[in-house]
Computed example of a mutant assay.
Amino acid sequence: MSYPLQKLTVRRQRLIAQAESQRVLLAQNADSLRKPLAMADKGLNVLRYIKHHPIVVAGGGATLLSIANPNGITKWLRRGWLAWQLTKKIINK
């Protein structure tokens, strides 16, 4: 085997070993982030659900409020309607 080819073979083996150690290090670092990223992903899924099913969420909230305080439901419905309108304006900008 010629010297340049032998030199390339050694370099290739060194790079393969370096890549393997980097993969191991990346996997170790990723494990510490797995739980927080999973929690953030669940939060994003909740926000997407609310965005795509606003009536269901609003209806559930109104039901809970009417059970908790039947007399104050109109006050909370007005506040909810105002919050909904403001949210729609902010999202649609």
Rank of each mutant, 00 (worst) to 15 (best):
T63I: 08
L26D: 06
I55C: 12
L15W: 04
L65D: 10
I73L: 08
P36R: 06
R12D: 03
T74N: 04
Q6A: 14
G72Q: 04
A62V: 13
L25N: 12
A40T: 14
A62S: 03
W84V: 12
P54Q: 05
K35D: 05
S66M: 13
Q13V: 13
Y3T: 12
W84H: 15
Q13T: 11
T87Y: 15
D31E: 13
G59E: 11
R11Q: 10
P36Q: 06
L65I: 05
I91H: 11
G43V: 06
L47A: 14
R48A: 07
S2V: 02
Y3H: 08
H52K: 06
K35V: 14
K35G: 02
G80A: 03
G72V: 01
I16Q: 07
G59I: 13
K88H: 14
H52L: 11
T63V: 06
L5P: 02
P4Q: 01
A83S: 09
S66E: 04
W84L: 15
G61M: 12
W81N: 14
S32W: 13
L77V: 02
D41R: 13
D41V: 12
S21Y: 10
H52E: 15
V56Y: 03
R48H: 11
T9Q: 13
A83Q: 02
R12W: 05
R78F: 00
W76I: 04
V56H: 01
K75L: 10
R14G: 03
H52G: 07
H53P: 00
I55N: 14
Q85P: 04
E20H: 11
G80N: 01
M1A: 08
G59A: 09
I90K: 11
P54Y: 03
G72F: 03
N92I: 10
G43N: 09
S2H: 05
Q28D: 07
A62W: 11
Q28P: 01
V56A: 07
L33I: 04
R78T: 07
D41I: 03
Q22R: 15
H53T: 09
K35W: 03
H52N: 12
Q85S: 10
P4D: 14
D41N: 15
L65N: 08
T87G: 14
T9S: 13
K75P: 02
V24C: 01
K51R: 15
L8S: 03
S21G: 07
Q18T: 07
W81Q: 12
V57L: 08
R23W: 00
D31P: 00
A58P: 00
R78L: 07
A40Q: 14
R23P: 02
A27H: 07
I67C: 00
L8D: 05
V57N: 00
K51G: 11
A30G: 05
L77K: 01
L5F: 10
K88M: 14
L64C: 09
R79Q: 13
M39C: 14
L37P: 12
P70K: 00
L64M: 05
A62P: 07
P4N: 02
K51T: 11
L5W: 08
D41P: 05
